[in-house]
């Protein structure tokens, strides 16, 4: 027997899920935008990665 998705509850939840999806998608876009803006401004976007990173100069 198949589960029918025609209950009112599903419609309401579907709308909530769509809104949440849009918010999360917007958040991803925003983080991407922030990254681009920071890199364009010349910020160093690399950080310690639990191994020795020659690209990051630890010595003074």
């Amino acid at each position: 027997m198949s589960i029918k998705k025609d209950h009112d509850l599903h419609k309401k939840r579907g709308k909530s899920n769509l809104m949440l999806g849009l918010v999360l998608g917007g958040f991803v876009a925003l983080v991407f935008g922030i990254t681009i803006a920071k890199m364009t401004a010349g910020h160093n976007m690399e950080a310690a990665d639990h191994v020795l990173r020659p690209a990051l100069s630890y010595a003074k």
């Binding site: 589960i3 209950h7 509850l9 599903h10 309401k12 939840r13 709308k15 909530s16 809104m19 949440l20």
Partner: peptide, 16 residues
């Protein structure tokens, strides 16, 4: 009886 009837009496919080 469908699964949905179980939750019918409790309000389902919406995004708003």
């Amino acid at each position: 009886m469908t699964d949905a009837t179980v939750t019918q009496n409790t309000y389902d919080a919406e995004f708003g």
